[in-house]
Design a protein around this nucleic acid. Structure first.
Lengths: 332, 332
DNA sequence: CTGAAAGCGCTTACAG
DNA sequence: CTGAAAGCGCTTACAG
């Protein structure tokens, strides 16, 4: 079409379309011009076929995560979609169950090899990851990792975030900082807990020398109820307690609710800091202090990493860590 | 590949692949077998190129809607994605701003003609819709309509839902049912309001003969705060009031909050019913009564309609209405 | 620097 | 019922 119009060969048109050398300045300009004049765009399927790529990348997320009120991963997706706009990639979003059987539950785009790479957001079935490895499909994990495995991944700096949060609490004069957490087997939560312990130790925030006295850490799936239970249990101990660091905002929401119910002043008597900075935290009344995680950034970074991996599949596994900071609002 | 293995022509393989007549039972079976044996799948880009289609459908949503805590349209998307799995379509999800300029903000898949059709979820820029019409790209509106225009669309039965809600309230002996709404210019909200008025009239729920006394309807964007304002204003009138129907759950959440603050018994003194049945409604304490909207169904239906439109572009505009029902929980 | 040619892997009339 | 052939619209060596 452009070739007809300009009298140049399609080969040359292809070269300028893909911004490749080997074309004289004049022809390039001529072609360029008629391209914009005719509002021409190359047909995707044709170039894909010729290039032997798909131009798609998959975004896989546990269906529960996608529907969660936190919208953590939806925001990651959004960031990724935004980043994608400057590229030629399209994203294919699909959800999976954690209880994942192959090939029954395999996303279509994996079954039919319709993606050049995949990002896996949050907790995903390990056998899915194993399949990706076996099939040598480039992928990166987003806010998740599999212990003992070396995968490309982008993570939140959970340790730094939690440490900073406790530090801030200490800097405001809090002496007895408790911890409430669920999902203790989750890598991220583990890190946050580890950082809490370290900070308590480093900053001399031991209550009576035994920091575990102010710790409520369970393996159960995180819900506001766990937060409620946690704060109840901690309060029942009747030890000095003037602040709580929660492993995430959902828990903190529960904690706040219970403190309110017991008419304990926030932050007067007890300060509360969460982690993730979800919408509900910012819009809570009073607005909640939390470790802000830049979710869109995470998605963007995952995309960038994935593209690198696609272009250079055998590079060694990379971990990209996104730093975070604690934003103080009215609960601390 | 399959052709080589079986000694049949690629043309024949293509026929069985696409389940088309004109192949003997034996050859068909032979081909079928080696297809599954070799775990073969046709290459998408090749068939797309030959068929002159893209196999993609776009899902366009206002970015604010996508990030809203209600997750209404995310759930629609999910339902659509699920429906899509039995088809050959992939969904390309993208967000837009309401303030939409062409071509600057045109989604890539529209710019490059990479979709066979589009579903527009919720409120979308009207100039975008106009562009779709002009370009003759098949599309369906999901939970939205443009007054005066005849588009393919799938809607919630807002009228029936609202009417039923008021009816239920009446059946429980409520005599003075108020209304609180925002976004009064939104087609769905209008319908709900219209149904409220009709129900009040039909059921003889006039307080003092003037139903508008118990109405708080604003044009402002819906937020819990509008709900708070609304109930405050209604209460200030000091008229008999024993129930509130809210145009949606977000408002109802605000109403509930304010009633609690004022220590008005729910539903003892005032019953509250919302609309949409978002997560936050079900998980509110106490669980909120609401008109349940099957969001995943909506997405599924939109997909089905779109496919029909793609296959038969010149059919006259269809409106598919999804019926809803009021689920009574503890606030009514 | 430029074009002719082959190839990517399908589908679709068209003969036979 | 089946195959040979052309075509879909690009890209990529390869000559010149």
């Amino acid at each position: 079409m452009i070739a007809d119009e300009t009298g140049v060969s399609t080969a040359t048109v292809s070269l300028v379309l893909n911004n490749r050398p080997g074309v004289s300045a004049e022809t390039r300009e001529l072609v360029q011009k008629t391209i914009t004049a005719l509002n021409y765009f190359p047909k995707r399927s044709a170039s894909q076929l010729a290039r032997q790529q798909t131009g798609n990348i998959g975004f896989i997320i546990w269906e529960d995560h996608f529907s969660e009120i936190e919208m953590f991963y939806s925001q990651c997706f959004l960031g990724m979609e935004l980043a994608t706009r400057d590229s030629d990639y399209y994203i294919l979003l699909t959800t999976v169950k954690l209880d994942f059987s192959i090939p029954a539950n395999l996303p279509r785009f994996l079954k039919y090899d319709d993606v050049d790479g995949v990002v896996l957001a949050g907790r995903v079935p390990h056998n899915l990851v194993a399949l990706l490895e076996k099939r040598k499909i480039p992928f990166v994990l987003l806010d998740y990792e599999i212990p003992g495995k070396n995968h490309h991944k982008v993570l939140v700096d959970n340790y730094q975030g939690a440490y900073t949060a406790v530090q801030k609490l200490a800097s405001k004069g809090r002496k007895n900082v408790g911890y409430i957490g669920g999902s203790a087997d989750h890598p991220s939560i583990k890190e946050r807990y580890r950082a809490y312990l370290a900070a308590i130790h480093d900053l001399g925030l031991h209550p009576n020398g035994n920091p575990l006295d102010l710790v409520y850490a369970r393996t159960k799936e995180i819900t506001p109820e766990i937060g409620i239970e946690g704060i109840k249990e901690l309060l029942a101990k009747d030890l000095p307690l003037d602040a709580i660091f929660c492993a995430n905002d959902t828990l903190a929401l529960g904690v706040l609710e219970e403190l309110k119910r017991q008419e304990i002043a926030i932050p007067g008597e007890i300060a509360v800091v969460g982690f993730d900075d979800i919408y509900a935290a910012r819009f809570h009344s009073p607005p909640m202090s939390s470790v802000h995680v830049p979710k869109m950034e995470l998605g963007k970074e995952a995309f960038k990493l994935l593209v690198e991996v696609i272009n250079n599949p055998k590079q060694i596994s990379q971990t990209r860590t996104i730093s975070v900071n604690c934003v103080c609002r009215e609960t601390s």
